[in-house]
């Protein structure tokens, strides 16, 4: 029994000296090398004395410390990257090039013949409105019992081509085909009103002729006003309005008869 007590005292003194050494190394700078060596030495001495519990505890501590940064770091980076990419994308309508505000302003310009037209808006050529109006015109003709989609498309194409040639020959400044098609297409809107009337009433009397003439005048006046402002053809509005009246007259002919 007394011998055992003496052995315990010796062990205590040995561990105390090891602690002092590790503290000194930490004070120096805490580099990995010396600490690893100290740890290895400590482990060796422990293995000599109490192997199982000393081995288990350091492993658990080391593993836990490794896992914490892994769980904490990765999530924010992908979210930030994805958020930036998504927020910087332009709106879908802007990417497709459809501007409903401009389409609405053009429609109002056509419906109000006496309203001063803004040249900058009309110079922006879009064919969405004209296509819709062309289809609406064909649909109203269909309601009246006339299947004339082919003729509507054909007359539209020939009319736009003819107006394009005429305006380029008459004006000093040139004009693009898209601009001509856009203006003529937008000014087709009152013609849809005429064909809508033709669904319900017959336009072959005197009242029908007056209504037809009024709407043709409305369409051609609006179109010529826009062309005059876009092409700077002063003093020639009547000369530009007349071919427009001829084109819309053909559409009216299809509506009435």
């Amino acid at each position: 029994m007394s011998g055992f007590d003496n052995l315990n005292s010796g062990f205590y003194q040995t561990s105390y000296s090891i602690d002092e050494q590790s503290q000194q190394s930490y004070d120096y700078g805490g580099s990995g090398g010396p600490y690893s060596k100290q740890y290895a030495g400590c482990e060796y001495s422990q293995q000599g004395r109490f192997v199982p519990p000393d081995m288990m505890q350091p492993q658990q501590t080391y593993t836990g410390q490794i896992y914490q940064p892994t769980q904490a770091y990765p999530p924010p980076t992908p979210q930030t990257f994805y958020g930036d990419s998504f927020e910087e994308e332009p709106p879908l309508l802007e990417e497709l090039g459809i501007n409903f505000d401009h389409i609405w302003q053009k429609t109002l310009t056509v419906l109000h013949p006496l309203r001063a037209s803004d040249g900058s808006i009309m110079n922006e050529t879009d064919l969405a409105g004209p296509v819709v109006f062309c289809l609406a015109f064909g649909a109203t003709l269909l309601l009246a019992g006339k299947i004339q989609f082919g003729y509507v498309y054909g007359i539209s194409a020939i009319g736009c081509l003819g107006m394009f040639c005429l305006l380029n020959l008459m004006s000093m400044t040139g004009v693009s085909f898209g601009c001509v098609a856009s203006v003529l297409g937008y000014c087709l809107l009152p013609m849809i009103l005429l064909s809508s009337f033709a669904v319900v009433f017959s336009l072959q009397g005197m009242v029908g002729i007056l209504l037809t003439a009024t709407i043709i005048g409305w369409c051609s006046f609006s179109a010529s006003k826009i062309f005059i402002s876009a092409l700077a053809m002063d003093g020639q509005q009547l000369l530009v309005a007349y071919p427009c009246a001829l084109l819309y007259g053909v559409f009216a002919l299809i509506s009435v008869f």
């Binding site: 600490y35 410390q65 490794i66 892994t70």
Partner: peptide
């Protein structure tokens, strides 16, 4: 003396790799 240097060194190195 164990926790501070072990945690700092390991997390720093792994953080740089992960970043």
């Amino acid at each position: 003396p164990n926790p501070p240097p072990l945690f700092d060194d390991t997390s720093g190195g792994y953080s740089s790799q992960l970043g």
